[in-house]
Write a protein that binds this DNA or RNA. Structure first.
Length: 295
DNA sequence: TTCCAGGGGTAGA
DNA sequence: TCTACCCATGGA
C-alpha cells in the first residue's frame, strides 16, 4: 500500500467536503464511517484502480492511499485535488457570508467545497438518476448500474461504467437490469452521443466556458432540465444556478416564506443578494436556525 | 389503489 | 412565465 498526502488550504475539513451533498453514498464511492475513509475504484483503461482518501492525523489535510503502481500516483493526486476542489478559491464566498448571520458558521468552518466525481459523465448520470425519484431509488439505480456494468479491479471492486460500455447495451436491458425506468432512453442516447463525438461533457471542466453557455449545453442533453443542469453546474464549480427541487421548495416554505408556497421566480429572487454564489448559500446556510426562528 | 419522491418534456394560455 | 398533463419506478 502506498500513502501520500495532498496539500490542503488552511481552512479545510475533509469530512465537511464528503458530507457536502449525497454523492458519497453513491457507488463507486464507499464511505466507511468508522475509519472515516472514502474509497472508490476507477477505470484507467489498462486497469481498474482501487484508492481511498481520509483525513490526515492532524485533521487538516488529506491522505491518499492506493496499491496502484507508481505511474498512477500523479494522476491520482490530480484526481483527488479535483474531486475535493482543493485548488479552488472561496475567499469571495466567505466574504459574502458576512451579509447574513445564517452564513457565519459556513465561513468560520471554511465551507464551500463540494465532493465531485472524476468525470462529468458520472456527475450527469447520477444527476439523471436523482430526477423525479426518491433518494433510496437513486442509490439503487446507481448501485445496479455500477454493479452490473462497471469494470472490476483485481480485488473485485466495480468502477463507474464508461460511456463506451453503456453505449453497447440495449436500452431495454439498461431499463430492466438497472430499474431506471424512462431514464434508460436519455442514458443510452447520451452514451452514444459521447462515443460518436457529438457530445463532449469533459470539455465542460475547462475554463473557456461562460457559465450560461455551459448551462445551455447541459440543458441540451435529453432528460436534463433546469434542476439537473443547475446541479451539474454546481459540481463544475459554477454556483449561480439554483437547483430547485422538492427539498428546495420545502426549505423555502419553512424558512424565508413563512409557511407559504412561492413561485420559482420568487424563490430565486430571494437569493439575488447572494449572486454569484446562490447555490453555495443554499447548501451551507444554517436552515435549522432559520426554521426555529419561524416557530 | 392511490399518492409521492432531491423533475423533465411538451403544449397551451 | 405559468399551468396541466404524462412519463417510470417502488415504497408508504
Amino acid at each position: 500500500m502506498y500513502e501520500f498526502d495532498l496539500s490542503c488550504p488552511k481552512a479545510f475539513n475533509f469530512i465537511d467536503v464528503v458530507y457536502s451533498h449525497g454523492w458519497y453514498q453513491l457507488p463507486p464511492f464507499e464511505w466507511e464511517t468508522d475509519s472515516e475513509s472514502l474509497t472508490r475504484s476507477d477505470d484507467y483503461g489498462e486497469q481498474v484502480i482501487d484508492w481511498e482518501m481520509r483525513a490526515t492525523g492532524d485533521g487538516k489535510g488529506v491522505q491518499l492511499r492506493t496499491n496502484a503502481e507508481f505511474k498512477f500516483h500523479e494522476p491520482l493526486r490530480r484526481l483527488g485535488r479535483q474531486m475535493l476542489a482543493l485548488d479552488d478559491e472561496f475567499d469571495a464566498f466567505h466574504q459574502m457570508c458576512d451579509l447574513d448571520p445564517g452564513l457565519h458558521a459556513a465561513k468560520s468552518r471554511g465551507k464551500g467545497r463540494i465532493l465531485r466525481c472524476p468525470t462529468v459523465w458520472e456527475e450527469v448520470v447520477k444527476t439523471l438518476f436523482s430526477v423525479n425519484t426518491t433518494w433510496n431509488q437513486t442509490r439503487s439505480m446507481t448501485r445496479n448500474l455500477v454493479g452490473k456494468y462497471g469494470r472490476r479491479s483485481p480485488d473485485g471492486r466495480a468502477s463507474f461504467p464508461t460511456p463506451a460500455i453503456i453505449a453497447q447495451i440495449p436500452e431495454y436491458e439498461l431499463q430492466q437490469q438497472c430499474r431506471i425506468g424512462y431514464r434508460a432512453a436519455p442514458l443510452a442516447l447520451l452514451a452514444r452521443q459521447i462515443c460518436d463525438g457529438v457530445m463532449d461533457l469533459e470539455a465542460l471542466r475547462s475554463n473557456r466556458w461562460d457559465p450560461d453557455q455551459a448551462e445551455a449545453y447541459l440543458r441540451s442533453i435529453r432528460g436534463i432540465g433546469p434542476y439537473a443542469a443547475a446541479n451539474v453546474m454546481m459540481l463544475l464549480g459554477h454556483y449561480d444556478h439554483l437547483p430547485i427541487d422538492s427539498w428546495f421548495r420545502k426549505t423555502m416554505r419553512e424558512t424565508w416564506f413563512y409557511g407559504q408556497e412561492a413561485t420559482e421566480t420568487e424563490m430565486a429572487a430571494s437569493f439575488d443578494r447572494f449572486r454569484p454564489f446562490r447555490t453555495l448559500v443554499y447548501l451551507f446556510y444554517d436552515w435549522d436556525s432559520a426554521r426555529s426562528e419561524n416557530r
